[in-house]
Amino acid sequence: MSLIEVKNLSKSFDGEDVVKGITFELTPGKCVALLGPNGAGKTTTLRMLAGFSKPTNGTITFDEQSLSSDIRNYIGYLPQFPVFHNWMSGKEFLIYVGQLSHLSKSEADSRADELLDRVGLTDAKKQRIGKYSGGMKQRLGIAQAMMNRPKLIMLDEPVSALDPIGRREVLNLMREIKKDATILFSTHILNDAEEISDELLLLHHGELVEQGSLDELGNLYDSGKIILAFQDNIPADMEEKLNKLSHITDIEFKKQSIEFISSDVIASRAEILQLAVQNDWPLTKFEIAKTTLEDLFMKVVNQ
């Protein structure tokens, strides 16, 4: 069963298609990364899900929507650059948005304390938000998105603007939240997506080019890439020798290494290692490369 179903969602601004008919489902309890280069339509997609932007076409269906027509009851949203009422203290702001989400004053109060503790802002809860650092604001932003115990938390580039420490804090926090809610977060940073997401939605030029779990996508694009690295320069007769082998294509020479694609990795491994021994190649590395997210990303984006 899916938490949310997005069908053929598209959006155009002034005749320019920003999101072009994307379809996906989110499974409850998963952490899903919406990955794509800048300008791929990630923010627009999230804003449509949050209700700020009306889809030009397509539908968004929440499974619990029958309970109430306002999907904002089930979502928490953190924009890319959250702006708070800077004159409020962190706790005041949480209570304010909690009450806006129909919590009573006392419920909002205790929930705010609980979340402030969870995001590590207990010491700063009485400080004016205007004095918070970027990382603190981001954590407060995550706390405010969780005030109404949403089923779905959407985070727009939650870590992109943070320093390594802030980034680490927020990623750990997201790992925590995963236990309570489904997370959909956008990012253009591959490491972040790789690190905490269960599933990926790869968006490019407004189209959903790939989706699935990291493993699935890895297999799909398993390239059979082999990398050879040499101690000094590459032996002169290498090209000739490699060309004689079957299964091997796309040979690419780099300064001290060669990369190529093999259609039968096992057979190629035996042949090449044999050649290496016979010819006394100064090998420093023999690697059957696993497709990284970066390869996948580049492959998809360059298609």
Partner: peptide, 9 residues
């Protein structure tokens, strides 16, 4: 600021 306020119901 509206992004935080109006994303609530």
């Amino acid at each position: 600021v509206y992004e935080l306020v109006l994303s609530k119901p």
